[in-house]
Design a protein around this nucleic acid. Structure first.
Length: 153
DNA sequence: GCCAACGTTGGC
DNA sequence: GCCAACGTTGGC
């Protein structure tokens, strides 16, 4: 079992939107970055844990946790012409982009803010905190996961 | 709104 | 294959 962090802009899709979704489950569509795509397609497995992070918002924070309920499959929004994430390079026969499904497990009582993450020396190596990092899907170490879960509870 | 950092594109 | 130009991300 592995752990991940997914970023989402709450103006676009927040953890409350996830809570309101059918079965509190959503497909994580729209990722159009190859490194993140590779994680979605190859590495993220059913049962893995996901930290749900709100970016470009106030507060910036890990706001809850989710579980992967469906492993990588083609992101069909890429071949919907009217979709904001349409990409003519991707076709049903030869998909370029992938997504997974996640289900809400818990909304933190105490969202773990970016400032709090930065203030914790044990989290110095977190990918999220590394300079210039712009990945929207990234791995999280088990010790980081365990600590953040405690901080958020 | 600014801007640093980074990914992608496309001419050569 | 190089690299300048451009677009995007995302914290501040």
């Amino acid at each position: 079992m592995n752990f991940w962090l997914f970023k989402s802009e709450p103006d676009v899709f927040s953890i409350l939107d996830l809570k309101k979704s059918k079965n509190q489950t959503t497909c994580w569509d729209g990722v159009r970055n190859y490194q993140a795509r590779n994680f979605l397609r190859d590495s993220i497995k059913k049962g893995d844990g996901v930290l749900f992070y709100h970016s470009n918002s106030d507060p910036l924070a890990v706001v809850g946790i989710c579980e992967v309920v469906e492993e990588g499959y083609p992101d069909f929004t890429a071949w919907e012409k009217d979709n904001e994430h349409f990409d003519p390079a991707s076709t049903p026969g030869k998909p370029v982009w992938y997504m997974v499904d996640i289900r809400l497990k818990e909304i933190f009582n105490n969202p773990v803010t970016l400032a709090a993450l930065k203030a914790e020396p044990k989290l110095n190596d977190m990918k999220l905190l590394q300079r210039g990092n712009r990945l929207s899907v990234m791995p999280v170490a088990k010790n980081e996961w365990d600590l953040i879960i405690k901080m958020g509870a």
